[in-house]
């Protein structure tokens, strides 16, 4: 693994900047109109939220079905702080940054509090608990006064735009990468692979489960906060069970344990319903149909656990394809045998 290759980082940063400039130019030239710009912002938000869920689902290997709940916590807490901050007339970056960090923090704290007892449960039971938690959060927000209740919360400063959404998504992804390729990330992944073996080599599984879950909630909160500042209006019914499902679907379709898969799936699944808008009535029917067919024919998702790497692609296209194929199919081309 070439993770300690600092050149690689610069290379990726360069690619990210170039991609940004291209998008920006296309927007200025109105090739990408305001409508599509909005879709791109939603893609960025979904990348953040689904990327964070991938930490729980793909790397920690725990099934969570209440991610929209964390998004809601982040969205509401950052929005409430943001409304309060408005009178200070801070520069946009500081205003948005403070609000998002606050949203992430509150969401992370709640994630930790829920994670400690919930993560004692395994598999489907954890799924149910997180599902239940997501529903409770929604009911609570619905019934509180200061969240605006069922009428929703309006008057949130609309300060999120394509530029800051793009870079926040880049930073979140960079952190997630840095995490999974560090000793802490390896500890998290070892729990997915075999919890008993992880304990047998000295991993404090309780601690690392809680850590993974908390970080996951933290970034989901940031994603939620960004959503709040782009919509400028929040309604508790947005963060329902369906929303949690949508996020899970992005992660699974992209490949659990593949962040680049999450990026691709976010882009496809966010724009697909928009592209199908002309078939409005059949839109969700087609969406669900594609989902089922996809799962039947490629249950490990588009990328499996493989990561797409620009540098590897450039330096050795053939070897790269081989490695991608191996990781995506879960087989090993040079190892042979099962």
């Amino acid at each position: 693994m070439d993770f300690n290759n600092k050149k690689n980082y610069l290379f990726n940063l360069g690619a990210v900047i170039i991609f940004f400039v291209i998008l920006k130019l296309l927007m200025n030239g109105n090739v990408i109109n305001r409508y599509y710009q909005g879709i791109i912002v939603f893609i960025c938000i979904n990348i953040i939220v689904a990327g964070s869920l991938n930490l729980t689902l793909g790397f920690l290997g725990q099934l969570a079905l209440g991610h929209a709940g964390f998004m809601a916590v982040g969205a509401y807490s950052s929005a409430l702080l943001s409304i309060y901050l408005r009178s200070l007339e801070l520069p946009v970056i500081m205003h948005l940054g403070t609000a998002l960090l606050f949203g992430g923090l509150i969401s992370g704290i709640i994630g930790y509090l829920i994670g400690l007892p919930a993560l004692r449960l395994r598999g489907d039971y954890l799924a149910i608990i997180t599902l239940g938690f997501g529903e409770i959060i929604r009911v609570v927000i619905n019934n509180l006064k200061f969240t605006g209740g069922a009428q929703g919360l309006s008057g949130i400063p609309k300060i999120a735009n394509f530029t800051n959404a793009y870079w926040i998504a880049v930073v979140v992804l960079a952190f997630l990468y840095a995490l999974i390729r560090s000793r802490h990330g390896r500890a998290i992944i070892s729990i997915r692979e075999d919890e008993i073996a992880a304990e047998a080599v000295g991993i404090d599984t309780v601690k690392y489960k809680a850590l993974g879950f908390t970080i996951s909630a933290f970034f989901a909160g940031i994603g939620g906060g960004l959503f709040a500042h782009y919509m400028a209006y929040l309604d508790p019914s947005i963060f329902n069970f369906m929303k949690s499902v949508e996020i899970v679907v992005i992660v699974v379709l992209g490949g659990m344990g593949s962040l680049t898969g999450t990026i691709l799936a976010s882009a496809v699944l966010t724009s697909l319903p928009e592209l199908l808008r002309n078939f409005s009535e059949y839109r969700l029917l087609i969406y669900s149909f594609v989902l089922v067919v996809m799962m039947i024919f490629r249950p490990q998702g588009i990328f499996g656990t493989a990561e797409f790497s620009l540098k590897n692609l450039m330096s050795s296209p053939k070897g790269f394809m081989k490695k991608m194929k191996r990781d995506a199919s879960g087989d090993d081309l040079n190892g042979g045998g099962k």
Partner: peptide, 22 residues
């Protein structure tokens, strides 16, 4: 373990590195 418990989907190198965690 009697019934080998490796981190199956990880490389041999990562299997060993995880044990260096502490």
């Amino acid at each position: 373990f009697q019934n080998i418990r490796l981190f199956k989907e990880l490389t041999v190198e990562d299997n060993v590195k995880i044990a260096y965690h502490n």
